[in-house]
Design a protein around this nucleic acid. Structure first.
Length: 430
RNA sequence: GGAGACGUGGCCGAGAGGCUGAAGGCGCUCCCCUGCUAAGGGAGUAUGGGGUUUGUAGCUCCAUCGAGGGUUCGAAUCCCUCCGUCUCCGCCA
């Protein structure tokens, strides 16, 4: 959520910046609602003040044994007006709140302006795609040939876009996960284990709700509750539970930065992506991911984004997987992000770079929604919003794909990357 | 799942319709005193929002005692629903 004060004082400028990411802010509507809000809120508050002081007068009069009947009549006449003013004021404020909850973050000034992913800017390329002296297969062919991947079984057990991994491939995925977590621990991230099912407040906090409900798996209601306040959802990313660990907390400035890493499955309905990446593990309803999350001082968040992105790169470098780093342009950046770097790994099976990590600085956007603050030493100890960041480090399923495809041999075997061997009992080849 | 108890500020804990944004204590901050330390004395110490202000400070108003409704001129206090915690029983990895 953007700062309401900013929207009131600098609306045109905000609208111009949002326009670069393809979001049309309805300036007239907001101005008119804000004008109404101001009027209705003042009116309601003035009436409340009047009622409060008269009610206090009743208490005093009563204590002194005076006749309170005339006072009662006076307050009684306020009641209708007050109720009307309160509900009008609340209605406008709720409307404003809902509109604000749907406004995306303002891109940082360093973000390149563009319309689509075609306008993303390559920052650097690391490693060189390996030249194979045979025709490189894609991960599905590689894995099926060895009996490691069974799509039919997954369809039988559940439905499409899930997978069943067997034997060495399942172990390789587990090895990757542990390798990633251990590497992040070396960089000062505390490992956390978190729930895979979250409530609506958490999803609002990180920005998935209210706008992107169709991307989520919602759990069936328990019993017949009238309200949907308690509806629960499967997490689309560990970002949600991990960032929300700090929701409604006031931290000490000296606690910052706080860095967490965690491994979770992620569940995405992939609504609207029918026909895209239907083959193999690239786009699934359920996949494994290791996530990094940071809570930092607002002045240090862009530095921290570079650092966090570097941590994701470290994983690829240690695995010796060629990749490139791109800055997402204003038109391709996610709803909550002020700036995002994507890491794209080379996939010989597709002869293309494909996204394997996305690292974002949300600045105070999520912190405002989830009230994650810190008390600064200066500024008279007033709580200030922290900045939040997160990044995949990495998407484990896609890393598995990348390892199979980049480390395949002509005979169908897979050479185990050096750094993973300790996690697989020293085995050099699968 | 059954039965009961409870949810108050950074923490502990009082309050049981009005004088309570909330006693008291701990902690923290500042000041005084004191060779140092310890002890002592004094003052301060919630959050969000609105208005005023170019902005800050200040002033002022509103809201907030787990959440949401209700009763009442007035609710931390009474009623309802929900959430959570604790104890006992049952079940269970």
């Amino acid at each position: 959520m953007l700062d309401a004060k900013l929207l009131r004082t600098d609306l045109e400028n905000v609208a111009a910046k949002l326009k670069t990411r393809g979001y049309e802010l309805d300036v007239d509507q907001i101005q008119s609602l804000e004008a109404q809000r101001k009027e209705l809120q003042s009116k309601a508050q003035n009436l409340q003040a009047e009622r409060n002081s008269k009610s206090k007068g009743i208490g005093k009069a009563k204590a002194q044994g005076e006749d309170i009947a005339p006072l009662l009549a006076e307050v009684e006449s306020l009641k209708g007006q007050l109720e009307e003013a309160e509900s009008a004021s609340e209605a406008v404020q709720a409307q404003i709140e809902e509109i604000y909850a749907g406004i995306p973050n303002i891109p940082h000034d360093s973000v390149p302006v563009g319309d689509s992913e075609d306008d993303n800017v390559e920052v650097r390329v690391w490693g060189e795609p390996k030249a194979f002296d045979f025709e490189a297969k894609d991960h599905v062919d590689i894995a099926e040939a060895r009996g490691w991947y069974d799509n039919d079984a997954a369809v039988k057990v559940t439905s499409s876009r899930f997978s069943v991994l067997k034997g060495p491939m399942a172990k390789l995925q587990r090895a990757l996960t542990q390798f990633m977590l251990d590497t992040h621990a070396e960089h000062g991230y505390e490992e956390v284990y978190v729930p895979y099912i979250v409530n609506q407040d958490s999803l609002r906090g990180t920005g998935q709700l209210p706008k992107f409900e169709e991307d989520l798996y919602k759990l069936g209601k328990h019993e017949e509750h009238e309200t949907n306040d308690r509806d629960l959802y499967l997490i689309p990313t560990a970002e949600v539970p991990i960032t929300n660990l700090m929701r409604d907390e006031i931290l000490e400035e000296s606690d910052l930065p706080i860095k967490f890493t965690g491994h979770t499955p992620c569940f995405r309905s992939e609504a609207g992506s029918y026909g895209r990446d239907t083959r193999g593990l690239i786009r699934q309803h359920q996949f494994e991911k290791v996530e990094m999350v940071q809570f930092v001082h607002p002045e240090k968040s862009h530095e921290a984004l570079e650092e966090l992105t570097g941590h994701a790169e470290t994983i690829l470098q240690k695995l010796e997987l060629p990749y490139r780093l791109v800055t997402l342009c204003t038109g391709d950046i996610g709803f909550s992000a002020a700036k995002t770097f994507d890491l794209e790994v080379w996939l010989p099976g597709q002869s293309a770079y494909r996204e394997i990590s996305s690292c974002s600085n949300f600045e105070d956007f999520q912190a405002r929604r989830s009230m994650i603050r810190f008390r600064s030493a200066e500024a008279k100890g007033k709580p200030q919003l922290v900045h939040t960041l997160n990044g995949s480090g990495l998407a484990v399923g896609r890393t598995l794909v990348a390892v199979l495809e980049n480390y395949q041999n002509a005979d169908g075997s897979i050479t185990v990357p050096q750094v993973l061997r300790p996690y697989l009992g020293g085995v050099e080849s699968l």
